[in-house]
Design a protein around this nucleic acid. Structure first.
Lengths: 169, 169
DNA sequence: CCTCGAAATGCAAGTTTGTTTCGTCAGGGA
DNA sequence: TCCCTGACGAAACAAACTTGCATTTCGAGG
């Protein structure tokens, strides 16, 4: 029946299958990492200890970077999400690095990316009100002598939020 | 000794203390939700069952919106993060809603926000390579008759990534 | 074709962790 | 004053996680 695989094909098949199973495993953890290993095992046809070992392996190799609880910003008094495109005056490496450090250090800066294109940085900021944002802009942008300009977008609707990575399979 | 509180002050004090303890509790879970309840209890001066009850309460009230594993995109073959500012032709409510649905439905769209300002939507997209992004733009933007234009920023460095909400205390 | 070794698995026992139960205490209102 | 509500701690209980060991599988090399 299903014999006579060309060697490369069979290897590819196995690799694909493995990856798919891992994908399903990871997909479950990405959705809810409190899922008991027993249930994950049933979903991927594995015993609980095997599930446990795979998780440990993925944590050690860095595939799983962390396990966190997601907090609803509005429920803790931080209902405002803001995007900022930041353009620097100078793109000297040291100044870029300094900006990275400064932005990262601010707890209000939830996410910070160094990007190509018409801006240098994109920040996602979480604050309680516009006053707090105004104060933060002063601290991060005006007090710095290296910010040429910045553009602000206020989120009206957090349509889709998460850090879920698309997985094959 | 510590008597003779004016009523409002003492209430405010208690409320503040409570909130601070919750903040510490939440801060721990935001960093690592696999932390044993016993350790959390030690950190916030509470017994394990009390910790358990608070977590359950916060999950039921929506303060904790989920418990997830963070997956490293590069480790699963999705190393490219892209930002897109999308501007629509029409801002009729139905079309806005249709766009929200369409963007949310795409697994590559990790985050989608409806914003004020010079754009209508900001998307954060995770893909394996630029070819995949090109295909996605065709699907999401060109095939739609409602996208006036979009601007792309490619992330060179994911300086700070997370969904951590700043907490008082 | 066969054997070997590395890696992954299942099973079963042991351990930690999470959950429930129960009794107690403090604050608020009738 | 008394009762009620809500939250707590201690202990018992249930569930999940973790480990050791024998087995299997797969690829490499003889």
């Amino acid at each position: 029946m299903q014999v006579c695989f060309v060697r490369d094909v069979s290897i590819a098949c196995i690799a694909t299958l493995t990856r798919q199973f891992r994908s399903r495993h990871l997909a479950i953890l990405q959705r809810d990492n409190t899922t008991p290993q027993r249930l994950i095992g049933e979903a991927v046809n594995l015993s609980a200890p095997a599930v446990q070992r795979r998780i440990k392996r993925m944590e050690q190799t860095g595939v799983i970077a962390g396990n966190v609880a997601l907090v609803a910003p509005a429920a803790v008094g931080q209902p405002i999400t803001i995007f900022v495109e930041v353009e620097l005056e100078s793109e000297r490496t040291e100044l870029i690095d300094a900006a990275k450090r400064q932005f990262s250090a601010a707890p209000e800066v939830q996410q910070c990316y160094y990007v190509t294109g018409e801006a240098d940085f994109i920040l996602i900021i979480t604050v309680a009100d516009m006053g707090a944002y105004e104060a933060l802009t002063r601290k991060l942008f005006f007090d710095s002598n290296n910010v040429r300009k910045f553009r602000t977008f206020v989120a009206m609707d957090r349509v889709k939020v998460g850090l879920t990575v698309p997985l094959p399979g």
